[in-house]
Amino acid sequence: MKIKMVRKIIFLAGLVILATALCMAEVWKAPDQEKAREKAKKIVPFIKEYKDDCKINRKICLMDAGISIKDVKDVYFLLDSPIIKKREDHYEPVRFAHKRHAALIQDCSMCHHYRPKDENALETTRCSACHQDSFNPDHPERIGIKAAYHQQCVKCHTAEAKGPVDCKGCHLQKVPDHKDLVKLPDNADPFQVTAECLRCHDTQGEDMLKTAHWLWKGPSPYTTGHRKDIMHGKGTTALNNY
């Protein structure tokens, strides 16, 4: 019994220390995320020519070369490129679990569909080596990196009926920096804050007024001082400060 108690205390203390440590290290970054970010930033030399191979041939080639899931070096990366950002910047990059996809599909040729013509090059190469900017007049048939990602992902997700196919299933919407957008005086009161939010998000405000969060009425057994009220809530007596 005692030992158990001690263990529990140590465990809790450990948790507390860990949490404090996490809080203390203000800008802790996930190393693999950082690595992925660095990798996505890089623009690799453009591969002009590729070996035009049929799909089955390509699959056999990859198998012959003995390439399997064990060879996956980048377990995780971000589908992103400065080439895309140059044109538009509406969404956060998609986080792509490379190894997981490889393990599920068991067929590298699904994505690594061609190889560079140069025999010395690696059998598999990253998407953005062949697919770079859209509408390259020298290679008009080559689709850009953004389209390559989307066509590949959406096609496969649809065919396998697995994985998201809508925008927000993969992306986070890029939220503009509110530092410059929000204009409030120092020591703003709650009403001013609410009004400032509603300045842009008025539709969301309207919608909120129709939800249960706003309209809820009912008994409130856990609200101090109102335990006996049978009709308490935002729709009636509770404080709504916006």
Binding site: R87, E88, H90, S134, F135, P137, P140, I143, G144, K146, A147, H150, Q151, V154
Partner: peptide
């Protein structure tokens, strides 16, 4: 590029 062709995610629009 035209606005639409810039944003099209799947390159359903090819400009040139």
């Amino acid at each position: 590029l035209p606005g639409c062709a810039t944003i099209c995610p799947t390159e359903a629009l090819t400009f040139g």
